[in-house]
Amino acid sequence: MRFIKRPNDVLFRVLVVLASISLAALSLLVIYSVVMRYVFSDAPDFVEPIALLLVIVIAMFGAALKVREGGHIGLDSLVKKLPPKGQLAAMAFQHLCLIALAVAIFSGCLQMVETTMDDRIPILGLPEALRYCIPVVASVCIAMFSLENLLALFVPKQN
């Protein structure tokens, strides 16, 4: 299990740092925008597109982090009533569904990256594809974390 756990540990820490920095930056950006708008009557144009990118980072990386921790939405009340083998099957099915979702997100967003590479985000001038690169990275993380959790179901725990 170490072959996947160690890289996922590093990936997890990187995502925590990036999501945390994005959340802090978003908070500061919103405060700046509010002060500029209501105190100085001069709303900056660049705040909204940057805030949108930060929200995408927070949401997608946060989702990947919760997959690693096993904190995603599930029907625990139903699964807990199943016998142990049924619980194992349900959890395995859940992780397989998450991997399938990650593949779908990866595929769809990769197509959008290719389609929007030449377009620019207004005001910022950055490639529109940047909005879709974030979910591509997050989907790889979701798949890696789900695979780790899936393998952990079938590997005996070591003390």
Rank of each mutant, 00 (worst) to 15 (best):
residue 122 P to C: 11
residue 106 F to Y: 12
residue 148 E to H: 10
residue 127 P to E: 07
residue 147 L to F: 14
residue 151 L to V: 15
residue 108 G to A: 10
residue 129 A to V: 06
residue 145 F to K: 02
residue 111 Q to T: 04
residue 152 A to T: 13
residue 132 Y to Q: 04
residue 124 L to C: 09
residue 141 C to P: 04
residue 110 L to Y: 15
residue 151 L to P: 05
residue 130 L to H: 01
residue 107 S to P: 00
residue 145 F to H: 05
residue 104 A to Q: 02
residue 146 S to E: 09
residue 129 A to G: 10
residue 124 L to N: 06
residue 145 F to I: 10
residue 116 T to C: 00
residue 115 T to W: 07
residue 149 N to E: 11
residue 106 F to W: 14
residue 150 L to D: 05
residue 146 S to Q: 04
residue 114 E to N: 13
residue 125 G to H: 07
residue 144 M to R: 10
residue 140 V to D: 02
residue 139 S to L: 03
residue 124 L to A: 07
residue 152 A to Q: 12
residue 114 E to F: 13
residue 129 A to Q: 02
residue 129 A to Y: 09
residue 145 F to Q: 07
residue 133 C to Q: 09
residue 143 A to T: 08
residue 113 V to F: 07
residue 108 G to D: 06
residue 111 Q to R: 13
residue 125 G to W: 06
residue 107 S to H: 11
residue 106 F to K: 02
residue 139 S to T: 05
residue 112 M to W: 05
residue 124 L to H: 03
residue 104 A to K: 04
residue 131 R to H: 12
residue 126 L to V: 15
residue 128 E to G: 00
residue 145 F to A: 06
residue 127 P to S: 10
residue 137 V to D: 04
residue 120 R to H: 09
residue 138 A to W: 07
residue 119 D to L: 13
residue 133 C to A: 11
residue 107 S to T: 14
residue 152 A to M: 12
residue 132 Y to H: 14
residue 135 P to T: 09
residue 126 L to K: 02
residue 105 I to G: 02
residue 141 C to Q: 02
residue 129 A to M: 08
residue 109 C to T: 12
residue 137 V to A: 11
residue 140 V to P: 00
residue 130 L to P: 01
residue 118 D to F: 06
residue 140 V to G: 08
residue 142 I to W: 02
residue 146 S to C: 08
residue 108 G to I: 09
residue 143 A to E: 08
residue 133 C to F: 11
residue 105 I to L: 14
residue 121 I to Y: 03
residue 104 A to S: 13
residue 125 G to C: 10
residue 110 L to G: 08
residue 108 G to L: 13
residue 122 P to A: 11
residue 116 T to W: 12
residue 154 F to P: 06
residue 146 S to F: 09
